[in-house]
Amino acid sequence: MIKAGIIGGSGYTGGELIRILLQHPATELDFVYSTTRAGKPLTAAHPDLLGQTDLAFTGTVNLKVDVVFLCLGHGNSTKFLQEHPFSANTKIIDLSNDFRLRKDAHFQDKEFVYGLPELNRAQIESAQYIANPGCFATAIQLALLPLAKAGMLTEQVHVNAITGSTGAGVQPTGTSHFSWRNNNVSWYKPFTHQHLGEIKESLGSLQPNPGELFFLPNRGNFTRGILATAYTHFKGSLEEATELYRTFYAAARFTQLAQAPIHLKQVVNTNQCHLHLHGHGNTLLVTSAIDNLLKGASGQAVQNMNLMLGLEEDLGLNLKAGVF
């Protein structure tokens, strides 16, 4: 059995990782580290795990586990790794944005690989350290990568995406608590969201100097999921676009192209990304839907772990959505 540890297990992404790893047939959850809940049962933070585990949070770290997941706030993973030198054999998967950009990928003696399997599968399979992509970044990249591969992002790309409140983290804020969020929608960080850097690097790795990307993120009045719509100029037919996407994602286990328009419920609680294409004259509209906590975070982290350890890519991740 693969021994796994989680650093920062009391938040939403940590809770989803615990849920997946407890059911994963090849892993044993060795510890869940928390500075604020050490000694308390995991169910104190995650009551949905009642009856599934008797583990408690710990304030100590096993530095020799086979794989460790860092579910820390942005900027904290670097500090934690400086203070906790893991074994050279320990694979590290970081879910923050500390190592996603190329300029940050080299840290100490570690080289972090950007962990988007649909883009970097071969590198992930041989990697020791992974920078897990952001949730918005995952949804938007999967919507645009086939066009970049074909060199077709020649003009402006406009993206509008809406995310659930869990994307803001477990600590309530002025724009995430129920009274504000319920029956409400608003935009934030227009054209400046922190995920733009990693999106642009990935697109640029397939197509030098792609068209300018304009991204408007929105807060939704629901808890989980991201629905992103991206549109840009496209010279071909809808049939040609469909063939382009089907070819690009032919071997992708978790990215599916739908014939009918898609909605959030069909991907929530899964590691799937569903895509849909719609043509309007010389404009192609690509819709992308993911669960921000799974394909956008913890599920993709386990997908990366499976690839790194030579396991079946979908092991422990065959989760079904609740559409009704």
Rank of each mutant, 00 (worst) to 15 (best):
residue 1 M to E: 06
residue 3 K to L: 09
residue 4 A to H: 02
residue 6 I to P: 08
residue 7 I to L: 10
residue 14 G to I: 09
residue 16 E to Q: 14
residue 21 L to Y: 04
residue 21 L to M: 03
residue 26 A to D: 09
residue 31 F to P: 07
residue 33 Y to T: 02
residue 38 A to P: 03
residue 39 G to P: 07
residue 41 P to R: 10
residue 43 T to Q: 03
residue 51 G to P: 12
residue 52 Q to F: 11
residue 53 T to I: 00
residue 53 T to V: 01
residue 57 F to H: 04
residue 58 T to A: 14
residue 59 G to M: 06
residue 62 N to R: 08
residue 64 K to H: 14
residue 69 F to N: 05
residue 72 L to P: 05
residue 75 G to H: 07
residue 76 N to I: 00
residue 77 S to M: 01
residue 79 K to A: 15
residue 79 K to G: 07
residue 87 S to Q: 06
residue 88 A to T: 12
residue 88 A to Y: 00
residue 90 T to N: 04
residue 90 T to I: 06
residue 92 I to V: 15
residue 96 S to Q: 11
residue 107 F to Q: 03
residue 108 Q to S: 13
residue 108 Q to M: 13
residue 109 D to W: 01
residue 111 E to H: 15
residue 118 E to T: 15
residue 120 N to E: 09
residue 122 A to G: 01
residue 124 I to D: 01
residue 126 S to I: 11
residue 136 F to C: 05
residue 138 T to G: 08
residue 140 I to V: 12
residue 140 I to W: 01
residue 146 P to G: 12
residue 148 A to T: 00
residue 150 A to M: 02
residue 151 G to M: 03
residue 153 L to G: 05
residue 153 L to I: 14
residue 153 L to K: 04
residue 156 Q to D: 15
residue 160 N to R: 14
residue 161 A to C: 07
residue 162 I to T: 14
residue 163 T to N: 04
residue 165 S to D: 03
residue 166 T to S: 11
residue 168 A to C: 08
residue 168 A to T: 09
residue 171 Q to K: 11
residue 172 P to H: 10
residue 174 G to L: 10
residue 182 N to Q: 13
residue 182 N to E: 14
residue 186 S to G: 07
residue 191 F to C: 09
residue 194 Q to L: 06
residue 196 L to D: 12
residue 201 E to I: 05
residue 205 S to P: 00
residue 209 N to D: 14
residue 212 E to K: 12
residue 213 L to Y: 03
residue 214 F to W: 06
residue 216 L to Q: 09
residue 217 P to F: 06
residue 218 N to W: 10
residue 222 F to N: 09
residue 225 G to E: 04
residue 225 G to I: 04
residue 229 T to S: 12
residue 230 A to M: 03
residue 232 T to G: 00
residue 233 H to D: 12
residue 237 S to G: 06
residue 238 L to N: 11
residue 246 R to P: 07
residue 253 R to C: 07
residue 264 L to K: 13
residue 266 Q to L: 01
residue 267 V to A: 03
residue 268 V to Q: 12
residue 278 H to E: 15
residue 279 G to N: 05
residue 279 G to I: 10
residue 281 G to P: 01
residue 283 T to V: 10
residue 285 L to H: 13
residue 286 V to A: 05
residue 287 T to K: 13
residue 287 T to E: 10
residue 288 S to R: 01
residue 295 K to V: 02
residue 295 K to A: 15
residue 297 A to Q: 06
residue 298 S to K: 05
residue 300 Q to G: 13
residue 300 Q to R: 11
residue 300 Q to N: 15
residue 303 Q to R: 14
residue 303 Q to A: 10
residue 304 N to W: 05
residue 310 G to Q: 11
residue 313 E to R: 06
residue 318 N to T: 13
residue 320 K to F: 06
residue 320 K to W: 02
residue 320 K to T: 14
